[in-house]
């Protein structure tokens, strides 16, 4: 196994992990503020993808722009749709259950996730009458990959990594350097005291949902660009992996979510890639990628139940 192949696997893992991380931030932020595992977050991600596609397919002229010029518009569309869906879900489905037993919002989240999938599958339309019951094609970069000494970096890969870095830097700035960001942090660490500081917790919860959704929309855009298609059910697997990443990194910790995503992506790609490489172990390659990912999760949780960057905190029920 050559170094080039290994580096290629690392590159693949980093890109995949960056995408997981972007989605995982949404799980972790919502969990951090209201201790809810928002199982519909995978569908928010999916809606972000369809929002971006809608701009591309339905707004006249966008499809004729060079892709790099169309991307900001698509990103805007994706973010708007994802944020609107997440804030709407919070307002209509989760807020009325704020004081209900914890199982109630959790089950609502699962129901919401199924409902959103069905809505897209049944009612999304493309110009010319196509629907979204099957995977739909997504624009992707033309042109060759960048060749770094044998390691290929796809244009979409580059976009993914840059987008993830910009988002995380922006998020770090938002949390530490803005009034809303600090208030959100405070609410996560001690909601009652935060209220006494004049912070309206409902607003902070909305902000957490909205920021998570915006990042998920960015992730959806990178997913579409990398694989050339999006589908109404793509949120399920992506959401599950991202949730795993959030737990791996320490749920509630934003930096942990990105770290967890990258560790998970690397684990998946390296384990399956290395095993696939050798004849005797090839059958445990791609097919077992998820197995290795979850073995890693179990190992980490056995050694550090709070996750990689998680704080060991007493349950504040």
């Amino acid at each position: 196994m050559s170094v080039t192949v290994l580096l290629q696997l690392v590159e693949n893992g980093l890109v995949l992990g960056a995408m997981y991380g972007l989605i995982a931030v949404g799980y972790t932020m919502v969990y951090g503020t209201i201790q809810l595992i928002n199982f519909a977050h995978g569908e928010i991600f999916m809606l972000g993808g369809f929002g971006a596609l809608t701009v591309y397919a339905w707004i006249p002229g966008v499809a004729h722009l060079p892709l790099f010029a169309a991307l900001p518009l698509m990103l805007l569309g994706g973010v708007v749709v994802a944020v609107a869906a997440a804030v709407g879900a919070e307002r209509l489905a989760y807020r009325p259950l704020r004081t209900a037993p914890r199982l109630a919002p959790l089950i609502t989240a699962i129901g919401l996730s199924l409902a959103l999938q069905q809505v897209v599958s049944l009612w999304y339309r493309l110009p010319g009458g196509g629907n979204a019951k099957a995977p739909v094609a997504f624009p992707s970069f033309g042109g060759k990959a960048f060749d770094l000494g044998g390691v290929l970096v796809q244009r979409a890969d580059l976009f993914t990594v840059i987008a993830a870095a910009v988002c995380m830097a922006g998020l770090a700035w938002f949390v530490a350097r803005t009034r809303s960001g600090r208030a959100m942090q405070a609410t996560a660490q001690d909601p009652d005291t935060a209220r006494l500081m004049g912070i309206d917790p409902d607003r902070m919860i909305v902000v957490a949902f909205a920021v998570g959704a915006a990042l998920a929309a960015v992730a959806a855009l990178t997913q579409g660009l990398r694989y050339g298609q999006i589908s109404f059910d793509m949120g399920f697997v992506a959401g599950l992996k991202a949730f795993t990443a959030a737990v791996l990194g320490g749920i509630g910790n934003v930096r942990g979510a990105m770290l967890g995503g990258i560790v998970l992506g690397l684990a998946e790609e390296l384990s399956s890639g290395i095993l696939a490489h050798f004849r005797d172990t090839a059958q445990y390659g791609q097919a077992w990628a998820d197995v290795w990912a979850f073995v890693l999760l179990i190992l980490v949780l056995l050694l550090r139940p709070q996750g990689l960057l998680g704080e060991r905190v007493a349950d504040r029920a």
Partner: peptide
């Protein structure tokens, strides 16, 4: 009941939330 993982300065800035 401080915000344990924020800096002292950030704690005070959060205290100022309703005046900004």
């Amino acid at each position: 009941r401080l915000f344990p993982n924020m800096t002292a300065l950030e704690n005070v800035m959060v205290g100022r939330h309703c005046r900004t």
